[in-house]
Design a protein around this nucleic acid. Structure first.
Lengths: 150, 150
DNA sequence: CCTTGACCTCAAGTATACTTGAGCACTTAT
DNA sequence: ATAAGTGCTCAAGTATACTTGAGGTCAAGG
């Protein structure tokens, strides 16, 4: 079983050693051992944990929640129901988040189309209801018609 | 054209009036006018802008970037190319973000499956390579086989 | 031997995005 | 006419997630 220094792990996960120390202090790495000199040592056994942390962090889960989960991980089999529930919860949360982002993406694409056309016309005026800066709904309909067969 | 108070908009967008004031101070709302008493007034013309801000905020775009975009919006037709480029950029960024989250979701689902089975067995040990706490790759393969026909 | 490099702790600083509080103005209902 | 409700500014406080700096240990190479 190979050992890894904090510097190795920092490179592997694309963070600074300061960040890893901060994670450790924050309770995200309750599994790290120390050598005789007090230096952190990571092992192959830890790589699975780090993968989970990485996933949760990229999903913008707060450190506090990750800490809780990791505490359960090192606490042993008694916490398996809690860890299972945690995954179910995070799955639902992430699905919801993705749905929101997909709606946002659709909106950005409409706006991109809008600016492409405004740009071509040289002015946004072509879209406005007379006397306002509100987009005439007919343009939105036109866009949706052009992009429905996708 | 209807007018709306800051309180109206706060309700409509599910934020506090303090947050809206903060957004205004931060340059996100360069379009808001004031009445004789110095109170902010929002109009129907502004609703389109707020929709964009809402979308960008939900996509975790920093206020700084949103401020830049809004400045271009009020600057007039000269900034149309920049606004078009902004949308193209944000679309790409959001697509990338969604891809990451979808990969994370797949990972969480595997972990959910893992904990469902560990839970059933009463122990995580069933997954480990002997003498380690590393998951034997055969389980991952089993999971993928069971979930490939989706 | 002594400098370089990687590690350590602890404390303070930074960035972002708000939130809260103090003190004041104006409108409206009792 | 006075109290409640909504609005205002400005300053300070909070939460999260790091980042930076000071000061020190230890092992290896020239």
């Amino acid at each position: 079983m190979k050992n890894y220094s904090i510097g190795d792990m920092a490179k592997k996960y694309g963070v600074t050693v300061a960040t890893l120390r901060y994670y450790d202090e924050s309770g995200l790495l309750p599994f790290v051992k120390r050598n005789a000199q007090g230096q952190r040592i990571f092992t192959d056994d830890d790589l699975g944990y780090l993968e989970v942390i990485d996933c949760l962090k990229r999903s913008a889960i707060p450190l506090k929640a990750i800490r809780q989960f990791m505490a359960w991980c090192v606490a042993g089999d008694d916490t398996l129901p809690k860890r299972h529930a945690f995954m179910i919860e995070q799955e639902a949360a992430l699905e919801a988040k993705i749905k929101v982002l997909q709606a946002n993406l659709a909106f950005l694409r409409w706006k991109k189309w809008y600016y492409a056309h405004a740009n071509e016309a040289g002015t946004e005026q072509i879209f406005f209801k007379p006397g306002t800066t509100q987009v005439d709904p007919k343009w939105r309909k036109k866009y949706l018609a052009e992009h429905s067969e996708v």
